[in-house]
Every structure is written in structure tokens, then in C-alpha cells.
């Protein structure tokens, strides 16, 4: 069954304490050359039928209204793909 992948990231201008903590542990464990980490979310929506333009529109609405909060996050991509297990 097709999967639609939605990626959501905290807004660029907002502090991402989670990313900062991960960046901190990279430095502590000796991984040089990485100056920053930001942590976002990936949603995998399993769709029953092939993804029609109508379904894509529906998922776009879901992505903006439910999966993300536009005050603090951005939807950075919506694409048809495969689940990470496949």
C-alpha cells in the first residue's frame, strides 16, 4: 500500500533545545565537524488506494492542521514514498 511521508520541523527562528542537546552529545563523544542539529518529525501515512490528487490535498490539509502547528513548526515536505521498513 502506498505511503505518504510528511516531514515537520520546528521553525528555523525558534530554539530547538532537543537538537541542541543532541549536538552537545555529538561534541562530547568526539564527533567534530558538526556544528548543529535540529530534530523534527516524520509521519508515515499508509493510504488504502493509490494516492490521487484529491488524497494528496486531503493529506496536505491534515499536515497543516493536525500534524503540525504553524505557530511553532513548518511542514517541510509531503511526498509519496515507502515506509522506512521497506
Amino acid at each position: 500500500m502506498p505511503t505518504v511521508i510528511v516531514d515537520v520541523m520546528p521553525k528555523d527562528m525558534l530554539l530547538d533545545p532537543q537538537g541542541k542537546a543532541v549536538a552537545g552529545v555529538l561534541t562530547r563523544t568526539g564527533h567534530a565537524g558538526i556544528s548543529g542539529v535540529r530534530v523534527g518529525k516524520r509521519f508515515e501515512l499508509t493510504v488504502d488506494e493509490p494516492v490521487t490528487p484529491e488524497m494528496h490535498r486531503q493529506i496536505t490539509t491534515i499536515a497543516h492542521n493536525i500534524l503540525s502547528n504553524s505557530v511553532i513548526e513548518d511542514v517541510v515536505s509531503i511526498r509519496v514514498g515507502t515506509t522506512h521498513e521497506q
Partner: peptide
């Protein structure tokens, strides 16, 4: 507005 994680984590 919105509420985000405390800046000190």
C-alpha cells in the same frame, strides 16, 4: 501563540 520546550531543556 504556542508553548515550546523549555530553553534549558
Amino acid at each position: 501563540g504556542g508553548l515550546i520546550r523549555n530553553d534549558h531543556g
